[in-house]
C-alpha cells in the first residue's frame, strides 16, 4: 500500500482529491440548503441566496411550539428504538444459528429472508392496512414496529451472520474447555467479538426505521403513532395560504440530528479488526 502511495504521481493525487471534493460537495449541498432554508425568515425564503440575508430561529421555535411535531418526534424515537432492539436481538440469534449450525431447512430460511428483503414494500401496504385494521393494530406503535422488524430482520441476519462467520470457531471450543457453558461462551466470548457487527447492524436498522415514510404514512392516522417523516407532510402554515417551507426545513434538520448522534456514538465501538490476535499471527 505504501508503495502505491509513494509511487502515485502528484497529478493523480490531485485528480483524486478533486473527485473526492466533488462527491462530498454533491452530497452535502442539499443538506446545507435545507439548513439554510430553516434559518431564513418568511420574507427571504424565496430569495435564492445560499447564505440567509437575515437569520431567524423562528422556524425552530414554531415547530417546537406545536404538539404535532413533538409528539411525532417521540413516536419516531420510540418506534425506531424498540424495532431496532428487537430486530437486532432476534437477528443476532438467527445469524449465530445460520453461521454455526447445520440444520434442515437452513438454506430455505436464508432464501426466504432474502426474499422478504427484496419484496417491494409498496405492494404490501394495502394488505397490511387491511390486516392491521382488522387486528386493531392500525395507528398504534406495534402497528409500525412489526412491519419494521419484518423488513429489518433480513438485513440484520445478513450483516450479522457475516460477522459471526469471521469469528474463529476455535474460540468457542476454547471457552468450552475453559469450563464455560454454551450460554457463557456466547455471552463472554462470542458476543463481545460480534459487538462491532451488532452496532453496525443497529445503526442500519435504526436508520431504516427512522427514515421510513411509506409505512408511516399508510399505517397511521393520528398523532398517536405518526412518526416525523409522515408528520412533516402534514405540516401547514397558520393559514391555508401560508407556505410551510421554513418549518418543514427546520423539522428536517431536527430529525437528522439524532441519526448523526447515533452514528457518531456507535462509530467508536466499530473497531475494525477486533478479532486480530485470536488465532496464529
Amino acid at each position: 500500500m505504501a508503495a502505491i502511495g509513494t509511487a502515485a504521481p502528484a497529478g493523480a493525487k490531485a485528480r483524486w482529491a478533486l473527485i473526492d471534493i466533488l462527491v462530498v460537495v454533491y452530497a452535502l449541498v442539499p443538506v446545507l440548503w435545507i439548513v439554510s432554508l430553516s434559518f431564513k425568515t418568511k420574507e427571504t425564503l424565496t430569495d435564492g441566496n445560499f447564505v440567509p440575508r437575515s437569520w431567524t430561529w423562528q422556524n425552530y421555535v414554531d415547530i417546537f411550539n406545536t404538539t404535532e411535531f413533538i409528539r411525532a418526534l417521540v413516536n419516531s424515537i420510540g418506534i425506531a428504538l424498540i424495532a431496532t432492539v428487537i430486530a437486532v436481538v432476534l437477528g443476532t440469534m438467527a445469524a449465530y444459528a445460520i453461521a454455526r449450525l447445520e440444520f434442515p431447512g437452513k438454506r430455505a430460511l436464508v432464501g426466504v429472508s432474502l426474499l422478504i428483503a427484496m419484496f417491494p414494500q409498496v405492494s404490501l401496504v394495502s394488505p397490511l392496512f387491511e390486516m392491521e385494521r382488522g387486528l386493531g393494530l392500525f395507528d398504534t406503535w406495534p402497528g409500525l414496529i412489526l412491519p419494521y422488524i419484518t423488513f429489518a430482520l433480513p438485513l440484520a441476519i445478513y450483516t450479522l451472520s457475516a460477522f459471526f462467520r469471521e469469528i474463529p470457531w476455535e474460540l468457542e471450543k476454547a471457552a468450552k474447555m475453559d469450563g464455560a457453558t454454551p450460554a457463557q461462551a456466547f455471552r463472554r466470548v462470542i458476543a463481545p467479538l460480534a459487538a462491532p457487527g451488532v452496532f453496525t447492524t443497529a445503526i442500519l436498522v435504526f436508520i431504516f426505521c427512522w427514515n421510513d415514510f411509506l409505512f408511516a404514512i399508510s399505517l397511521t392516522s393520528t398523532e398517536a403513532s405518526r412518526t416525523v417523516p409522515a408528520a412533516l407532510s402534514f405540516f401547514t402554515g397558520s393559514s391555508q395560504f401560508e407556505d410551510p417551507t421554513g418549518t418543514v426545513s427546520a423539522a428536517a434538520v431536527v430529525i437528522t440530528v439524532p441519526i448523526i448522534l447515533f452514528v457518531l456514538f456507535f462509530q467508536r465501538r466499530i473497531v475494525a479488526g477486533l478479532t486480530s490476535g485470536a488465532v496464529k499471527g
Binding site: P168, E170, K173, M177, T181, A278, V279, K280
Partner: peptide
C-alpha cells in the same frame, strides 16, 4: 460429560486466545 465437567485443559493449534 460436557467438556467443562471433565476438568481438562486444552491448547489449540491456533492458540484460540480471546482477542478482546
Amino acid at each position: 460429560r460436557a467438556p467443562k465437567d471433565r476438568d481438562i485443559a486444552m491448547v489449540f493449534q491456533s492458540y484460540a486466545l480471546y482477542p478482546h
